[in-house]
């Protein structure tokens, strides 16, 4: 209760530094002073797995579809966000870098979620590229390399500790990792590792549960992610039984068709990128959550690949009731293709 009461202003706090903050999380704010993504990037690894303090916003975003021995499906999320007041780093408490993290476990009945906040500069949170380590408090995503990681997080009523092994290459979205977010020019650097095998233990009120499955790690950074007119997005990461994968998102724009983008991923890691309009989604069912209506079933189409599926939330109540509230949870896929995946929806007021 107590925690809840102060986290709401904190959410404002995090969006506040961006003058004229608009859109979800202030992601449509001004980029003044910060570095801006440019087309045709060349990444250099492992350095680029680390933080980019000259960009305003950045995240390390892990989602996983899991299954227990008895076939019960679970979802898991571990995300570390970095946001900056200024495009620099300063010593200790004076650091303008603010870190926060979300962790969640979804069961068919319950959705557990919690968050952490930290200031940069004092070592409470951060990311080191090599050997890779991302942490805040005792939560961490770390390993000898980006392909072999362990992830752990806990709240007051749940926790998890898992091992991840990549079985494929990194995937770059948009133009070699330059992912456009609007026709006005907003963009981010965006790549993923969608080929993780994952296994480990969930700590739930009923006791520990051993689970296995597949995980998807997104890396994205930018300084001005959304245009002024964009209020939120719906992001789909679909893993089909064929081994093929599809990442697609739509950015909802005031007074206009949504801006969409998609990446088709073959089991061998080869990709095809689709421009706005190719990927189409339409809400099928709404759920009332925290006083708002959120679509928890969708029709998803990518006609170029013959994809016409229906996705349903495994637990429609996967509401992240945190300082920045949004929906994030595992989904089940049926129709032209079947499989599992993750859905994230933001900006539903």
């Amino acid at each position: 209760m107590l925690a809840k009461s102060y986290l709401t202003p904190l959410a404002l706090c995090l969006s506040a530094p961006f003058a004229g903050a608009q859109g979800f999380m202030g992601l449509a704010g001004d980029a003044e002073g910060f570095a801006v993504p440019t087309p045709n990037p060349t990444f250099s690894f492992p350095q680029d797995h680390g933080a980019h303090p000259d960009h305003r916003i950045e995240w390390w975003y892990l989602t996983a579809n899991l299954e227990a021995a008895d076939g019960t499906p679970y979802g898991l999320q571990w995300t570390l966000f970095r946001t900056a007041f200024a495009p620099e780093e300063a010593e200790e408490w004076a650091s303008p870098q603010v870190w926060f993290a979300h962790a969640a476990v979804t069961t068919p009945e319950t959705h557990f979620a919690t968050e952490r906040f930290a200031r940069g500069g004092i070592g409470q949170a951060g990311v080191i590229a090599d050997p890779f380590e991302a942490w805040i408090d005792e939560w961490s995503l770390a390993g000898p390399s980006f392909d072999s990681l362990r992830v752990a997080a806990q709240g007051s009523d749940f926790g998890f500790e898992m091992a991840l092994e990549a079985e494929g290459p990194l995937i770059f979205h948009g133009e070699q990792g330059y992912s456009e977010k609007s026709l006005e020019g907003q963009a981010s650097y965006y790549y993923s590792q969608p080929f993780f095998r994952i296994s480990g233990t969930l700590q739930l009120p009923e006791g520990p549960e051993h689970v296995t499955g597949h995980a998807w790690l997104d890396r994205e950074w930018s300084s001005q992610l959304l245009s002024d007119r964009q209020g939120g997005w719906d992001w789909f990461a679909l893993t089909f039984e064929s081994g093929q994968k599809l990442m697609g998102f739509q950015l909802r724009q005031a007074g206009d068709d949504p801006f969409t983008a998609a990446t088709w991923i073959e089991p061998d890691g080869s990709t095809e990128v689709y421009p706005t309009g190719a990927f189409e989604v339409a809400p099928l069912e709404l759920s009332e959550l925290a006083g708002r209506k959120v679509p928890t079933s969708w029709r998803v189409e990518l006609p170029d690949r013959g994809v016409d599926v229906r996705v349903d939330a495994i637990n429609p109540g996967s509401w992240m009731d945190l300082a920045i509230p949004y929906w994030e949870g595992p989904i089940r896929i049926g129709g032209s293709h079947s499989g599992t995946g993750y859905l994230e929806m933001t900006g539903y007021e």
Binding site: Y6, L10, C13, F117, A118
Partner: peptide, 9 residues
């Protein structure tokens, strides 16, 4: 304010 429950408030 980032880690204190009530000072932000």
């Amino acid at each position: 304010p980032l880690t204190s429950p009530s000072v932000a408030l």
